[in-house]
Amino acid sequence: MRFPREFKPKPTNWKVVLTTAIALAALLFPIGVAAMPAGAVVSTGDVPRGTSEVERNTSDVPRTSLYNTDAASSLQVVVNKKRPLNPIDYLPKGKVQIGYAWVAKPAAEAYAKLKAAVSAKKLGTLCINSGYRSFASQKIIHAAKVAQLGKAAGERLAARPGHSEHQTGLAIDVSTTQLGCRIGPFGSSRASKWIAQNAWQYGFIVRYPSNAKTSITGYVWEPWHLRFVGVELATDMRSKKITTLEEFFGLPAAPRY
């Protein structure tokens, strides 16, 4: 049908129609901020600079639920005098040989980067004094230390089999070639001091950080004993200024068996 020019219908303004429909729906079915309980916080999606993925929206979540601290194969497994590996004769897969030592692959890859960084800083050439130890090997080491120093003193230096981080393949005892790869004098070296401050960037922590923490970890200061936990966890520990896994995860202290 043709209309005279003055009676021709105007094109529909769909923008007005949609806006009106949305406004009507909001009145009939209030949702969003209007429906939120009093005091609710609306997230804008912004995250403070420097916040890790784990910290995002997880401030009230127990840390043990963010990381697997129980499985022997986990990068974050916590093994100490109160927490044996499960199974106790656990054998890690995918070990890599570095010199005379064997190391779990993730730790080996991180160690290569750490070693390169130490060399770049002209602090010496890192070497691994000890890496993976089997249940049987740890049994021999433990027995030797106890025979040499007595049970109490010996067990502050050597773990019982099944209770050693070395059995996971994630722990390494490091030194420098300039020290003949001996761990004894490592703590006074420039490399040791730099590693204590920077190992977290490569996913390592100094697992037994000071004699003041012996009542928590069960071991005396071992500046050479590095434990790979992954960059994320190491960064979280660094940012919170927490130096032991037991304290970070709120686990019982393990001064003795």
Rank of each mutant, 00 (worst) to 15 (best):
A107E: 05
S188F: 08
A112F: 01
K213I: 06
T58E: 01
Q178P: 06
T12R: 10
V206P: 12
A72R: 14
T20L: 11
T20P: 01
Y100E: 15
K115L: 01
L226Y: 02
F249T: 03
F135W: 14
M1H: 11
A35P: 15
L85N: 09
T168C: 11
W200K: 07
A35M: 11
R256P: 02
V79D: 09
I183M: 01
K115H: 05
G218V: 05
N129R: 02
A153G: 12
G250L: 03
A120I: 08
A40G: 13
T176M: 07
S52H: 04
P4S: 11
T235E: 01
D60R: 00
R5H: 08
R182C: 01
C127L: 03
F248G: 01
L179D: 12
G169P: 11
L28Y: 03
K82I: 11
A116H: 03
V118H: 03
I183K: 02
P30Y: 09
A171C: 06
M36Y: 00
A144F: 10
T19D: 12
G169K: 10
T51F: 14
S74K: 00
V103D: 04
G94Y: 04
R63G: 13
S164T: 07
F228H: 12
A120C: 09
T12E: 09
S175F: 05
W221M: 01
N57K: 12
Y90V: 04
A21Y: 06
G45C: 09
K145A: 15
A234N: 02
Q178K: 03
S210H: 05
S175I: 05
P11L: 00
T58I: 06
P209R: 00
Y132I: 06
Q138I: 11
S59E: 15
V16K: 10
E109A: 12
G169L: 13
T235F: 02
G32P: 15
N68C: 09
L251V: 03
K240W: 08
E246A: 04
N57R: 11
F228D: 05
V54F: 02
P37N: 13
L126R: 00
F228L: 06
R238V: 07
K193Q: 13
A40H: 07
S215W: 05
R256N: 11
V16M: 06
G180P: 04
R190G: 06
Y100R: 12
N68D: 15
I141P: 07
E165P: 02
F204W: 11
K151V: 14
T217E: 12
P161L: 12
S130G: 13
S175Q: 06
G39K: 10
S52K: 01
A35K: 14
N80T: 11
S73N: 14
A199D: 03
S130K: 10
V47S: 10
L91D: 15
N198L: 02
A152R: 07
A212E: 12
L75I: 06
V231Q: 11
P48C: 06
G184S: 06
T177P: 04
K115P: 01
S130M: 06
R133M: 09
Y90S: 05
